[in-house]
């Protein structure tokens, strides 16, 4: 249940971040002023928080997506494996949150 809700939540979050990605892309490809502006934001507290959120969301969504594909393919279908795989994916997300928090 938690892994499933988190999958929808992280998916929505990744879509909502799309305008931000485009803005950063514009900054990277635009004038030197645009570049400096994008770089300044990415190094600010808010920029780091956004990068952290996107990083955690993409890690979780990617890992849980693979888990769902495995279930679709008929692997790890026992109740024990379904629960265990959810715990593993959630643990990876927590680990990535800590690692990204430390790196950023």
């Amino acid at each position: 249940m938690l892994a499933s809700i988190a999958h929808r939540g992280s998916g929505v979050l990744l879509v909502l971040f799309l305008p931000f990605y485009l803005w950063v892309l514009h900054g990277m490809l635009g004038t030197p002023q645009d570049f400096d502006q994008a770089l300044a934001l990415l190094h600010s507290g808010m920029g780091r928080l956004i990068l952290w959120g996107v990083g955690v969301a993409i890690t979780f969504h990617f890992c849980n997506g693979i888990r769902f594909l495995m279930l679709d393919a008929g692997w790890c279908e026992s109740q024990r494996m379904m629960r265990l795989s959810a715990r593993i994916v959630l643990s990876i997300a927590v680990a990535s949150a800590l690692l990204l928090g430390w790196l950023l």
């Binding site: 249940m1 499933s4 026992s78 109740q79 379904m82």
Partner: peptide
Amino acid sequence: QIMNCMDCCPKELNPTK
């Protein structure tokens, strides 16, 4: 694949599967 069905089944069956 929300899997609430599997979590609550009193007979411990697995409808998701």
